[in-house]
Simulated scan of single mutants.
Amino acid sequence: MITYKAIQLKDGRECVLRNAEPEDAEDFLRYFDISHGETEFLTTYPDETEHNESIVSVRLKTQKESEHDIEIVAIVDGKLIGSAGIHMVQDRDKTRHRAEFGITVMKDYWGLGIGNELTAMCIEIAKEAGYLQLELDVVADNEAAQNLYKKHGFIEYGRNPRGFKTRAGKWQELVLMRLELDK
Protein backbone atom coordinates (compact mmCIF):
# COMPACT_ATOMS: atom_id res chain seq x y z
CA MET A 1 0.00 0.00 0.00
CA ILE A 2 1.39 3.36 -1.01
CA THR A 3 0.43 6.44 0.91
CA TYR A 4 1.45 10.11 0.96
CA LYS A 5 -0.12 13.18 2.52
CA ALA A 6 1.16 16.65 3.38
CA ILE A 7 -0.58 18.36 6.30
CA GLN A 8 -0.25 21.72 7.99
CA LEU A 9 0.48 21.48 11.69
CA LYS A 10 -1.11 23.64 14.37
CA ASP A 11 2.12 25.69 14.51
CA GLY A 12 2.01 26.35 10.75
CA ARG A 13 4.78 23.96 9.70
CA GLU A 14 4.27 21.26 7.11
CA CYS A 15 4.39 17.59 7.99
CA VAL A 16 4.67 14.87 5.38
CA LEU A 17 3.07 11.51 6.14
CA ARG A 18 4.28 8.73 3.85
CA ASN A 19 5.29 5.12 3.67
CA ALA A 20 8.45 4.31 5.53
CA GLU A 21 11.16 3.46 3.00
CA PRO A 22 14.12 1.09 3.44
CA GLU A 23 16.34 4.17 3.12
CA ASP A 24 14.70 5.56 6.29
CA ALA A 25 16.28 2.85 8.47
CA GLU A 26 19.03 5.01 9.99
CA ASP A 27 16.64 7.90 10.73
CA PHE A 28 14.02 5.44 12.00
CA LEU A 29 16.47 3.98 14.52
CA ARG A 30 17.47 7.47 15.70
CA TYR A 31 13.82 8.47 16.13
CA PHE A 32 13.05 5.14 17.86
CA ASP A 33 15.85 5.63 20.39
CA ILE A 34 14.80 9.20 21.16
CA SER A 35 11.05 8.58 21.39
CA HIS A 36 11.38 5.42 23.47
CA GLY A 37 13.61 7.26 25.92
CA GLU A 38 11.25 10.22 26.39
CA THR A 39 8.29 8.49 28.02
CA GLU A 40 7.29 5.51 30.12
CA PHE A 41 4.18 5.02 27.95
CA LEU A 42 5.84 2.78 25.31
CA THR A 43 6.42 -0.97 25.28
CA THR A 44 10.22 -0.92 25.23
CA TYR A 45 13.20 1.06 26.39
CA PRO A 46 15.63 2.22 23.68
CA ASP A 47 18.34 -0.24 24.73
CA GLU A 48 16.02 -3.26 24.50
CA THR A 49 15.77 -3.30 20.76
CA GLU A 50 17.63 -5.82 18.66
CA HIS A 51 17.23 -3.58 15.66
CA ASN A 52 20.07 -2.54 13.46
CA GLU A 53 19.99 -0.59 10.22
CA SER A 54 19.99 -3.70 8.03
CA ILE A 55 17.13 -5.39 9.90
CA VAL A 56 15.03 -2.22 9.95
CA SER A 57 15.65 -1.60 6.25
CA VAL A 58 14.39 -5.09 5.36
CA ARG A 59 11.35 -4.72 7.64
CA LEU A 60 10.42 -1.36 6.13
CA LYS A 61 10.77 -2.75 2.60
CA THR A 62 8.58 -5.73 3.48
CA GLN A 63 5.92 -3.50 5.03
CA LYS A 64 5.87 -1.18 2.04
CA GLU A 65 5.26 -4.14 -0.27
CA SER A 66 2.67 -5.76 2.02
CA GLU A 67 -1.04 -5.82 1.26
CA HIS A 68 -1.85 -6.06 4.97
CA ASP A 69 0.78 -4.25 7.04
CA ILE A 70 2.10 -0.72 6.80
CA GLU A 71 4.45 1.68 8.55
CA ILE A 72 3.86 5.39 7.99
CA VAL A 73 6.44 7.97 9.00
CA ALA A 74 5.93 11.63 9.87
CA ILE A 75 8.57 14.05 8.56
CA VAL A 76 8.86 17.66 9.78
CA ASP A 77 11.62 19.96 8.50
CA GLY A 78 13.31 16.93 6.92
CA LYS A 79 13.40 15.05 10.23
CA LEU A 80 11.62 11.75 10.96
CA ILE A 81 9.69 12.53 14.16
CA GLY A 82 6.92 9.94 14.33
CA SER A 83 5.47 6.76 12.95
CA ALA A 84 2.37 4.64 13.04
CA GLY A 85 1.58 1.23 11.72
CA ILE A 86 -0.87 -1.59 11.44
CA HIS A 87 0.17 -5.21 11.61
CA MET A 88 -1.91 -8.36 11.30
CA VAL A 89 -2.35 -10.03 14.69
CA GLN A 90 -1.71 -13.45 13.18
CA ASP A 91 -2.05 -14.85 9.67
CA ARG A 92 -4.57 -17.54 10.63
CA ASP A 93 -8.17 -18.02 9.52
CA LYS A 94 -9.56 -17.03 12.92
CA THR A 95 -7.45 -13.89 13.36
CA ARG A 96 -6.84 -12.47 9.86
CA HIS A 97 -9.56 -9.87 10.44
CA ARG A 98 -7.61 -8.25 13.31
CA ALA A 99 -4.71 -5.80 13.18
CA GLU A 100 -2.64 -4.21 15.91
CA PHE A 101 -2.21 -0.46 15.74
CA GLY A 102 0.81 1.34 17.14
CA ILE A 103 1.88 4.97 17.08
CA THR A 104 4.72 7.06 18.48
CA VAL A 105 5.52 10.75 18.08
CA MET A 106 8.58 12.45 19.55
CA LYS A 107 7.66 14.54 22.59
CA ASP A 108 8.64 17.90 21.04
CA TYR A 109 5.90 17.31 18.44
CA TRP A 110 3.03 16.33 20.74
CA GLY A 111 -0.11 18.42 20.45
CA LEU A 112 0.44 19.53 16.84
CA GLY A 113 -2.11 17.18 15.22
CA ILE A 114 0.36 14.57 13.97
CA GLY A 115 -1.05 11.74 16.09
CA ASN A 116 -4.57 12.54 14.92
CA GLU A 117 -3.59 12.43 11.25
CA LEU A 118 -1.51 9.26 11.61
CA THR A 119 -4.38 7.54 13.42
CA ALA A 120 -6.91 8.56 10.75
CA MET A 121 -4.61 7.34 7.96
CA CYS A 122 -4.05 3.99 9.63
CA ILE A 123 -7.79 3.49 10.13
CA GLU A 124 -8.46 4.14 6.43
CA ILE A 125 -5.60 1.87 5.36
CA ALA A 126 -6.87 -0.87 7.69
CA LYS A 127 -10.29 -0.67 6.07
CA GLU A 128 -8.74 -0.81 2.57
CA ALA A 129 -6.70 -3.85 3.62
CA GLY A 130 -9.90 -5.62 4.66
CA TYR A 131 -9.38 -5.65 8.41
CA LEU A 132 -12.51 -5.68 10.53
CA GLN A 133 -10.92 -4.70 13.82
CA LEU A 134 -7.99 -2.57 15.00
CA GLU A 135 -6.58 -3.22 18.47
CA LEU A 136 -4.18 -1.43 20.80
CA ASP A 137 -2.98 -1.28 24.38
CA VAL A 138 -2.41 2.09 26.05
CA VAL A 139 -1.00 2.94 29.48
CA ALA A 140 -3.90 4.04 31.68
CA ASP A 141 -2.03 7.19 32.75
CA ASN A 142 -1.73 8.29 29.11
CA GLU A 143 -5.00 10.20 29.00
CA ALA A 144 -4.08 12.21 25.89
CA ALA A 145 -3.60 9.01 23.87
CA GLN A 146 -6.81 7.49 25.21
CA ASN A 147 -8.72 10.64 24.24
CA LEU A 148 -7.23 10.48 20.74
CA TYR A 149 -8.25 6.87 20.30
CA LYS A 150 -11.76 7.50 21.65
CA LYS A 151 -12.12 10.45 19.25
CA HIS A 152 -11.56 7.97 16.41
CA GLY A 153 -14.10 5.49 17.79
CA PHE A 154 -11.92 3.07 19.76
CA ILE A 155 -13.63 1.59 22.81
CA GLU A 156 -12.18 0.05 25.94
CA TYR A 157 -12.80 -3.67 26.29
CA GLY A 158 -10.59 -4.56 29.24
CA ARG A 159 -7.69 -3.69 31.50
CA ASN A 160 -4.50 -5.36 32.58
CA PRO A 161 -3.48 -3.87 35.96
CA ARG A 162 0.03 -5.34 35.69
CA GLY A 163 0.54 -4.83 31.98
CA PHE A 164 3.94 -3.11 32.25
CA LYS A 165 6.50 -3.06 35.03
CA THR A 166 8.91 -0.15 34.73
CA ARG A 167 12.58 -0.41 35.52
CA ALA A 168 11.81 1.56 38.67
CA GLY A 169 9.50 -1.28 39.71
CA LYS A 170 6.22 0.58 39.16
CA TRP A 171 3.24 -1.29 37.70
CA GLN A 172 1.47 0.36 34.77
CA GLU A 173 -2.10 -0.58 34.00
CA LEU A 174 -2.85 -1.15 30.33
CA VAL A 175 -6.19 -0.22 28.79
CA LEU A 176 -7.15 -2.60 25.99
CA MET A 177 -8.99 -0.83 23.17
CA ARG A 178 -10.49 -1.85 19.84
CA LEU A 179 -12.15 -0.25 16.85
CA GLU A 180 -14.66 -2.25 14.82
CA LEU A 181 -14.14 -1.23 11.21
CA ASP A 182 -17.19 -2.95 9.71
CA LYS A 183 -19.77 -0.81 11.53
Rank of each mutant, 00 (worst) to 15 (best):
T62K: 15
A145L: 05
H36W: 12
E38A: 08
A168H: 10
K151W: 03
G12R: 07
N116W: 02
G78Q: 15
T44R: 12
T39E: 04
Q133F: 03
E100M: 13
D33L: 02
I114L: 07
L60C: 11
G78F: 12
K165R: 13
G158I: 02
P22C: 02
L176W: 00
A168G: 11
D91E: 12
A144M: 09
K150F: 09
L29H: 08
F28K: 09
R162E: 04
I2R: 08
I123M: 04
E71D: 10
V58G: 10
R98W: 03
L148S: 01
E67D: 07
H87W: 09
P46S: 14
G102M: 03
K94H: 13
E71M: 11
Y4K: 15
D182W: 13
K165Q: 11
Y149N: 04
A99C: 04
P161E: 03
V56F: 07
A20T: 03
H97V: 09
E38I: 10
R162N: 04
R96Q: 09
K94R: 15
M121H: 06
G163K: 04
L118D: 03
G37H: 14
D77P: 04
K151S: 01
E124P: 01
D47W: 15
G130C: 06
R92C: 08
V56A: 12
A168Q: 10
A145M: 03
L132M: 11
G78P: 13
A144T: 08
L29Q: 11
N147Q: 13
K61V: 06
F41E: 03
E135M: 13
F28L: 14
E143L: 13
V138D: 04
E26F: 09
K150H: 09
F154E: 08
E53T: 15
S83R: 14
V58Y: 10
E128Q: 09
L112M: 05
D69A: 06
G37M: 14
F32L: 15
I125N: 00
L80A: 01
H87S: 13
A140S: 12
